[in-house]
Structures are given as structure tokens and as C-alpha cells.
Design a protein around this nucleic acid. Structure first.
Lengths: 185, 185
DNA sequence: GTCTATACCAAGATAGAC
DNA sequence: GTCTATCTTGGTATAGAC
């Protein structure tokens, strides 16, 4: 397999593992298994586990911003916020973009991952108000709902056997004209 | 030092470490240092790192619910949501209750921590609608803002050297009559 | 109740062959 | 481009003394 293609496949596999286990919980061995290659080769390709994680996070950030930009130009009806919400929903994939980003956010105290996480969030923030034209208040609501979605995904609230929890999950992820919707569950 | 007192002190130290590093990132050695005792003794007291984490999470959940219950009866002016928000704000301590809870939420895929995290969130949800009397929609807004706050705390957005990010942080944490406010930063 | 010493294992990284 | 073998470290847990 060609280098760049192998690299892509490994990034995808790594994303899925990092999404579930978090940075520290994930092992390069598990990532290697998911990618169908040997553990040392994973390390070899990216230099270190940390570098690999940063590459994954960067890819997710770009994916989110690309999806948002596309949503601004898609000529669909609805408010900007609702179109961005749909884009966020459509972004749902098995490799769990939302969870990767969230995992990086929870590592703000890490000297190397922390700054990257803050930069990424800041870029999204700037996109919201400068490119999408949302008010800062609207951006706050949008991002709050996004964080709620990410959190429910992370904890897998849908697995909870409780009527209220079930209904709540449905409501949050269900078609909602004013915010991000369902993702990868 | 008496057993129960030592236990409490260790739980507090562990909370601070788990809040910053997450479950997998934290080490019992670091917790021991923070508590001023030896690493094996930390393990001895709680049986395992996992048990210790579960004890910390449980303590945080109780702290949140206690604070919320107290806020319902405090006779302060304002809506229920704003009083709960103030309680959330007042809960701010060095040991980072908000981050502990959030770290547990991101471990939903873990076979033992996952169920505990879901149960905890479900209890808060039930409190909101059954004891506090919030509509499910109001509970969603409240929790969304709470998750945004937790996320900003986790990534330490306040450290970001960017005007918009700074302003956003201030807005989210600042006195807001309709949601949770500043916590431990 | 608390420590020191240590066993034991998992995991990231390196060396070097093919 | 990819593997096997292995080094090394760090981290949880146990044993046992004081």
C-alpha cells in the first residue's frame, strides 16, 4: 500500500480508538490492530503517539470547518444556525470526529495538546462570528448545544435504561431547527 | 492521622489530579504525592485506582446534588434556573468537581466507569425535572450551558491569547441570570 | 496506619532484517 | 514499506516490616 494511503487509513483507525478511549487510554497496539498493521509501524509513521493524536485532532478540526463552510454555501433554506447544525449532524461518522475534539478539549492542562486544543476551539469561534455571521450570543448557544451533544455521545446516554434519559437523548439529537443534531450514534 | 480523615484528604488530592489529567492520565504516584503519602498506601486504602476514581466521582455527584438541593431552599430571588446556576458557580473549588464529572462522562465506553457516569447524569436529569420542576426543554438549555462551562474549564480557554476567546470566556462565565456561571478558574 | 521494597505487566519506542 | 524482536520505562499492585 502506498505511503499516503496507509497514512490515511491509520489516521482513521486511530481516530476511532482515540474517540472511545481518549488519548491516554488508547494504546498504539490497539490502533495498530484497528489499522491492520504492526504497532512499531504506527509509531514509525508518526514519530510518536502524541504526534499521531495531534494529526488526528487536526484532521477533525479541518473536517468540522470544511463541513461548516460548505453549509454556508449550500443554498438550503433555514437560518444559518440551523444549517450549521445540520452540517454538524451530517458530519457523523464511525471515526467519531466529535469525540476526538472533545477528548482534546479535556486535555487543556497538557503542555503540548492543551495549546492545540485551545487554538482549534478559537478557530471555530472565529468562524462562527466572522464567517457565519452569528452574534456572540448565538454562537454561545450553538456551541453549548454542541458540547451537550458531544458529552452525551461520550457517555453513551442512549445506552441508559431510563425513560427520561432516553427521551432526553432523543430530544437533544432529534431534528431540531435551532442547533446541531444527531451525530454518530 | 485517623483513617477516615486520611481517606478524605486522599479523595481531595485525587480529585485534583484526576481533574487535570483524566482517569488514564493520572497516576497513583502523583495522587500520593499530592496527598503526602506513599503510592502503595493510596492503592491500599481504596483497593485499586479504579475504585478510587469511582469514589471521587461519587463524591462529586453528591456535592453537585447537595448544592442544587440547597439552592432550591435558600429563599433567594430569581428563577429556579438562575438559582441553580449560582449554586453551580458557588461549587467551584480547587479540586475541580466539574472536571471530574466531565472526565467520567468521556469514559462512557468503559465497562465499569461508563454505567456509573450514565447513572450520575441520569440522577441530575431527574433532579432537574422532578425536584427542581424545570421543563425538559429548560433542563436541556441548562445542561447545555453547563457542558459548555465544563468544556471551557477543561481546555482552559482563559489561557488563550485571543480577544474573542477572552471575551467569550468572560461572557460564558460571567454573571448570567439564566444559567450556570463561573466555577474554579 | 503507614512505609520500603519489589514483583509484574503493559506500553511506547528503537534496531535492524527483509 | 513493513515486520519481528527487544529495550526501557513507568505504573499498579502485593508482601511484609514497623
Amino acid at each position: 500500500m502506498a505511503g499516503s494511503q496507509r497514512r490515511e487509513a491509520t489516521l482513521t483507525a486511530a481516530a476511532a480508538v482515540f474517540a472511545r478511549q481518549g488519548y491516554h487510554g488508547a494504546t498504539t497496539e490497539r490502533i495498530a490492530q484497528a489499522a491492520g498493521i504492526s504497532q512499531p509501524y504506527v509509531v514509525r509513521m508518526f514519530g510518536s503517539k502524541e504526534n499521531l493524536f495531534l494529526a488526528v485532532v487536526d484532521g477533525c478540526l479541518e473536517a468540522v470547518l470544511d463541513a461548516f463552510r460548505a453549509a454556508l454555501d449550500d443554498g438550503q433554506p433555514g437560518t444559518v444556525a440551523s444549517r450549521l447544525g445540520s452540517a454538524y449532524r451530517a458530519l457523523a461518522t464511525e471515526d467519531g470526529v466529535h469525540l476526538i475534539v472533545m477528548q482534546s478539549y479535556m486535555l487543556g492542562a497538557d503542555p503540548v495538546i492543551g495549546p492545540v486544543a485551545r487554538d482549534g476551539f478559537t478557530r471555530i469561534l472565529h468562524f462562527m462570528v466572522e464567517e457565519a455571521g452569528l452574534s456572540e450570543s448565538a454562537a454561545e448557544s450553538f456551541l453549548a448545544k454542541g458540547m451537550l451533544i458531544n458529552t452525551l455521545l461520550g457517555m453513551r446516554l442512549g445506552d441508559q435504561d431510563d425513560p427520561l434519559a432516553q427521551r432526553f437523548t432523543q430530544t437533544v439529537f432529534g431534528p431540531d431547527p435551532a442547533g446541531p443534531g444527531p451525530t454518530d450514534r
